[in-house]
Design a protein around this nucleic acid. Structure first.
Lengths: 348, 348
DNA sequence: AACAGGCTGACAACCGATTGCCAATATTCT
DNA sequence: AGAATATTGGCAATCGGTTGTCAGCCTGTT
């Protein structure tokens, strides 16, 4: 009487026809029973559902995708899966996609625009939409890609392409004020990849703010946004004569911390360091990093939400939108009062 | 004359029939030209390839999967995408899968066996194989699942199921010796989830080794393998009277570091801490963590290699195998000589 | 010159679903 | 009761490929 766990031969998975046969109906009826509840008689549906459950029927996603045209998968393209920054994004997208019943296709483009283009073309068929983090593509290429399939960018602002922007420039300016209030007057920005649009936005904001506030901010770099390039960045920073550095991201900043210690410089006594992103580890490195805290995971979630709403919208209404996420400065131990000027020490 | 970038109407992607029409052949010929090089005349094939290139033809993965039965996708199931340990695995699998032309389906099972089972069933159709990290399933369930589809586990040893094992017990025993040599005689193991098989293996090895070496190792916990539970672990450790703790993983260890500092205890002067995994951050936390370095990324790569060889093997030969990856102890700053016994201070 | 056999391309079935359309039956209204 | 309408299930085409089978053609052999 009771339903046995049953039917689970190691053979091929059960298809919709197996279920249909068991119920004495056709495949189309089963399909409708399972997807268009009202379209089928209550009793038949119950029978079909029971049979499906008993046979452990799982609809074939491929077949579904082929006939319906929707894959219920979303591709997330990251430039470098090695970077903890992306982990937070991935976590966010994964969470939100899963909640919506979507599958996440994770792709590492290895910072190559060619890989990115190919993947995009590939995904046009494989995924219902794409989330692009830190795209290396030109504005035109992005806009074009966006007309071909639903797309949301993160940290990349192109007209007509929905995007989620982490507003780091505002907070880096806060960082600047923070440093100024600590007495720093010669500050450096340790730049990231020149192709990075956040890098550009941040520097623009920073140099404008520096002018307003009558302090000097020099730009160093570009440096790779990795821990290992923190050494080069730290050396450049020391050489520049600045007493404080704002790094493109936490990875660099953490690398700088290590290098400065190696060189016998104390942070923050001799040098203040500010990072960006507030990645895992920024709070427990030594000293804990003063950094720009960005809601990275949330950015991933929001991107998914935007993408899905784009997918579900029946071709109607606003195909473009932008969501700017606020960031704030988190002050920890890597920033402190400026050291007394060693060169221009006039006394008092 | 020259091929225009061309054909890229925003309309639907080009199909194999479009290519066929352009060449004046049938779809089947195009299919063979593209997949079975020798099956088609050299000249025809050239024409077809040219046409495909011009039309920017990308085979539809869904259709391909449906007819061929292979999706060229591999699912990677992780228990908790929040854990940096998995990041390294994901990085490894991603790298290797990509190199082999496979797509990675990343799924977070949220430490739930139910989600795990469902996903597995789902993936049976969607992916060609599955890599299971830290499965919560019973041995029987795993063995059963393994008969239904290609499967490789990481850190889980079940008869008949191919697996990659990080041999942490050996290195935790090294850690024990390390601590003993530093004069510690009362040592605690801060356990992870009881369902974790690495946790069990590690404890078994540790308690056996402790007996051999005539030192006392107490087991505390279980604790969640997260940073936040480091606080509870640290408190338990202090209360236990031990002078050194070996934590289930680095996350816990790092959390403990923070808590001990909060309580005014110095590491390693008052308490020695050993972690496990050597995750991102273990080298720059304060103090840098003495830990068991495991080739986690490599584990991901090896798992993929094993899975793919399983897929490509024409049903023949050894369907089972196991790969044990060696780990080693990395000594950093969180371990030091045992403090003089505060209670039994008899003088000299 | 006739036949065997290798090449090559077309035809058609099929993978597992979805969906438009139609027919049979059930229900409601006059 | 008879007609109009609603409900329900089946048929068959379709999504975009793959693959077994077959026929036509060319070549080589005797």
């Amino acid at each position: 009487m009771s339903a046995t766990p049953s039917g689970d031969t190691p053979g091929r998975p059960t298809t919709i026809r197996d279920v249909a046969a068991l119920c004495g109906v056709t495949a189309s009826t089963v399909s409708r029973a399972l997807t268009t509840p009202g379209r089928v008689n209550y009793r038949t549906r119950a029978r079909i559902e029971a049979a499906a459950a008993e046979l452990n029927y799982v609809p074939n996603a491929q077949a579904k995708a082929l006939s319906s045209g929707r894959t219920r998968a979303v591709a997330v393209l990251v430039a470098d899966i090695t970077n903890p920054f992306y982990f937070d994004i991935i976590r966010g997208t994964q969470l939100q996609l899963k909640a919506a019943g979507y599958t996440q296709l994770l792709v590492d483009t290895e910072e190559s625009d060619e890989v990115e283009v190919n993947t995009l073309e590939q995904m046009r068929q494989t995924a219902d939409g794409v989330i692009l983090t830190a795209s290396r593509l030109s504005d035109e290429a992005l806009a074009a890609a966006s007309t071909k399939m639903p797309l949301v960018t993160i940290n990349r602002d192109v007209a007509g392409v929905p995007s989620v922007i982490l507003d780091t420039p505002t907070a880096t300016n806060q960082a600047l004020d923070h440093l100024i209030s600590l007495g720093h007057s010669r500050i450096a920005y340790l730049g990231g990849p020149e192709t990075s649009s956040s890098n550009m936005r941040r520097w623009d904001a920073l140099s404008a703010a520096a002018m307003e506030r009558h302090v000097e901010v020099v730009r160093l770099g570009p440096f790779a946004p990795r821990t290992y390039s923190g050494a080069a960045a730290a050396d450049a920073l020391v050489h520049s004569g600045a007493t404080a550095g704002i790094a493109f991201n936490d990875l660099m900043a953490i690398g700088m911390l290590a290098r400065l210690r190696e060189r016998g410089l104390r942070v923050p006594e001799d040098m203040s360091i500010v990072g960006c992103d507030d990645i895992f580890g920024a709070d427990f490195c030594s000293p804990p990093l003063t950094t720009v805290t960005a809601p990275v995971e949330q950015a991933g979630r929001v991107a998914v939400t935007m993408l899905l709403s784009q997918l579900n919208r029946g071709r109607g209404a606003l195909p473009r939108s932008q969501s700017v996420l606020p960031t704030y400065l988190t002050i920890r131990g890597s920033t402190g009062v400026a050291p007394a000027r060693p060169s221009s020490s006039l006394g008092s």
